[in-house]
């Protein structure tokens, strides 16, 4: 028996704005009348490490999405999409920003960063639908590369049971007013991609 309406896993690199995204989604869900449970990564991993947040809409239980249970995996970085792919359910959807961020283990030459196809092929195999998005470029087009997370939010908005107005309202409450216009554009660009 299902124990939540929609389970989302957000993956990325510390500093990419994963926590801000969780907050926006959580606040929007509250507006929509859902009970929400979220688990956030704070602390050590935020120094450029791999980070993962969970958010469960219409859920009264623990904040962690069970492995194999996510309806949507929203990844702000391709390697991080694959790292947390086991959270996806077989019916799940993966939305992946294809712009890679190299960890220091790669920049210092200890490891190599795999070609994009090698990351996407297994993702394709294990979920129902994979959608790749050049969110970093779209954010630049929108006027600020930092708004990449909001491009991805726009893409996500088409796949979760929250209305655009609720998300935009939560977005406006969560970012400084002077960045709102760029962020709204970023949201729109992301939404159009999917």
């Amino acid at each position: 028996m299902r124990t939540s309406v929609c389970d989302i896993v957000l993956a990325g690199v510390g500093g990419q704005g994963v926590i801000l995204l969780s907050n926006i989604i959580g606040k929007a869900a509250l507006k929509a009348g859902y009970s929400v449970r979220g688990a956030e990564t704070h602390g050590m991993a935020q120094r450029g490490g791999s980070v993962m947040n969970h958010i469960r809409l219409g859920c009264e239980y623990g904040p962690l999405v069970p492995a194999g249970g996510a309806d949507v995996l929203l990844a702000l970085e391709p390697a991080e999409a694959l790292r947390y792919a086991h959270y996806l359910s077989t019916d799940g959807i993966a939305l992946v920003n294809v712009y890679p961020v190299h960890p220091t283990t790669v920049t210092t030459g200890q490891f190599t960063y795999p070609p994009l196809e090698e990351i996407l092929t297994p993702l394709q195999r294990i979920c129902n639908k994979l959608k790749t998005i050049d969110a970093t470029k779209l954010a630049v087009n929108a006027g600020n590369p930092q708004a990449m997370n909001v491009v991805m939010l726009g893409a996500l908005s088409e796949h979760i049971p929250l209305r655009e107005e609720e998300l935009i309202e939560a977005l406006s409450e969560s970012v400084p007013a002077k960045f709102l216009e760029v962020n709204r554009r970023a949201f729109e660009f992301g939404k159009r991609e999917v």
Binding site: V13, G14, M44, A45, Q46, R47, G48, G49, S50, A67, G68, A79, E80, L82, R83, A85, H86, Y87, L88, H102, P103, T104, T105, V106, Q110, F111, T112, Y113, P114, E118, I119, T121, P122, I126
Partner: peptide, 15 residues
């Protein structure tokens, strides 16, 4: 669930 490629090809990303 496990995705074997994740263990095989991904570079670690420690903080």
């Amino acid at each position: 669930r496990s995705v074997k490629e994740a263990d095989e090809i991904l570079p670690p990303r420690p903080p």
